[in-house]
Amino acid sequence: MIELQNLSAGYAGRDVIQGVSLSFPPGRVLALLGPNGSGKSTLLRAVLGLIPKSGGQVLMDGAPLETLSPRERARKAAYLPQTRSVPNITARRMVLHGRFPHLSYPRRYRREDYDAVDRALELAGAAGTADRPMGELSGGQRQRVYLAMALAQDAPTLLMDEPTAFLDVGHQLRVIATARGLARAGRAVALVLHDLPLALRGADDIALLSGGRLAMGGTAEDVYASGALDQVFGVSLRRVETASGWHYYYE
């Protein structure tokens, strides 16, 4: 499990996130919410050690992040970044790259790696496009390939930065469903989301960031009930109960 203790980090001497304490427990989907510039992406990047921290601590299975090699980190947490390059290779090859942390120099992919890739493609719903070049895929198909790559990494924690960006509603719901499935299978999943109703319906827990600080953290129910979302985003979020559960809307 990954835990943040009082973590501060930022760029060029300016802290973007300050004193955030948070954990990513296995079996749960955590939605990271917050207005633009509140530090959601920075938080994920600091958790992975992609940017240096300026204070506090990141623990991966109890070990401080600094004591782990990049490869050890990669086997504990997979990351889906916000901007993703589209190299001229097939989707299957792309997903195979997710196996990289499991190989040692000089890297040769093994039978078990190809098997893991097939499983990941299946799980992400990308098996149908496996042999097509990335450049020919639609945004939604590419997104699933990236998800498959993160899954092939076989890490217990999965951090996704805006996995639903640029996707149509159907694909957005599918991303959330996949996240839920992964959590059921025992992984810790954290997603940066912008759609509050989607997050409230899909996530178990919510971490609400505001101005680089954790404004509120807890179960989706608690965070909604606290009214903190209304305050931070300056909206009035309401809900009605329907046959299929709570439906959220803005007033």
């Binding site: 990047r45 992975l48 050690g49 992609l50 090699s69 990049p70 490869r71 050890e72 980190r73 990669a74 086997r75 947490a77 997979a78 990351y79 970044p81 901007t83 993703r84 390059s85 190299p87 790259h97 997710g98 990289f100 942390p101 990494q153």
Partner: peptide, 10 residues
Amino acid sequence: LGGDTAQSLG
């Protein structure tokens, strides 16, 4: 795949 992805892959 880009610096961030590369680093997150170890």
